[in-house]
């Protein structure tokens, strides 16, 4: 049903997979995600639909290895079946001609940023993208982002590529030189927190796409809840995009760490088992 059609490595830890899913390809809009489960012991994890091809009936996911489940997905080869794939989920991005857009993507957050940048550009916006990562090999999709942006600034923490510094420094540079009408922020929680503080300082309306822990992705469990503007919201059905200035990022970061010990243990066990398999 959901066969892997092609696979591409952006780096050792970041893989893009094109997967057969004709219904999802047709129904999806920018900002949507899917829930994916690999193997009968697998967990369900959320991944953004990076692009889709309606004619080929495929969607493309860009996955960064961070633990067991993302690892299992990156280990799928062309021809393998994804055990379970369901979507498209969440609310689509609100797209209109805002004027000038500042699109900020950190790490693997550039993958979900790509379809949004594409749509905003199509809607007539001027798009300035700032993409950032710890080092050169973690910068992904730069060419694709360039295709749909008027300008791209690349930042690395260690200065191994682009400009040296944090994403917020790249953002400030743009904000100081021209008027920004709308910002879009996607990346690790901590990056979104500081990026949101930066745009708030300059009164720039901003949306952030949140990456909370999810179980079902359909509003059934409440694992993904987050406080926005003092109210509890479910990221999977109300989001994943929210007004970045209203999100309680500290609470979100705290909730993301809820299962850290189990995750580390699971990953070690999995690696240990696959190593032994390799030996046998």
């Amino acid at each position: 049903m959901n066969k892997v059609i092609s696979k591409h490595y952006y780096s050792e830890n970041v893989v893009s997979l094109e997967i057969e899913a004709p219904r999802i390809a047709k129904a999806r809009r920018a900002g949507h995600f899917v829930m994916v489960r690999v193997g009968n012991t697998g967990e369900r994890i959320p991944l953004t639909i990076s692009t889709a091809n309606v004619e080929r009936g495929t969607i493309t996911l860009v996955v960064q290895k961070v633990g067991v489940s993302s690892r299992k997905i990156t280990e799928l080869e062309v021809g393998d079946e994804v055990t379970d794939l369901v979507g498209p989920l969440g609310q689509a991005t609100h797209v209109e001609n805002f004027g000038t857009i500042l699109a900020c993507g950190g790490g693997v957050g550039v993958a979900p940023l790509l379809p949004i940048v594409e749509e905003l550009k199509k809607a007539g916006n001027k798009v300035i993208s700032v993409i950032a990562a710890r080092s050169k090999d973690l910068i992904i999709l730069e060419d694709q982002i360039r295709q749909h942006s008027d300008e791209v600034i690349v930042m690395t923490d260690d200065g191994s590529y682009g400009k040296k510094g944090l994403i917020t420094e790249g953002m400030e540079e743009v904000i100081n030189r021209e008027k920004i009408d709308q910002a879009v922020i996607i990346g690790p929680g901590i990056m979104m927190k500081f990026a949101a503080l930066t745009t708030k300082k300059h009164n720039i309306p901003s949306i952030a796409s949140l990456n909370t822990i999810m179980v079902d992705g359909t509003g059934m469990c409440g694992a993904c809840r987050v406080t926005v503007g003092g109210k509890t919201r479910f990221v999977c059905v109300d989001g994943p995009e929210f007004d970045a200035h209203e999100v309680d990022f500290d609470e979100m970061l705290m909730r993301l760490s809820g299962y850290r010990e189990d995750e580390i243990k699971a990953d070690e066990q999995y690696l240990c088992v696959s190593k032994n398999k390799g030996k046998a």
Partner: peptide, 23 residues
Amino acid sequence: LPRFMNIPGENLVGVLSSNEYLT
């Protein structure tokens, strides 16, 4: 869809809906 009570501290780690727990 699980209901919550909207009382302080309900989003702390370790507070979860029965749907999440049982699922």
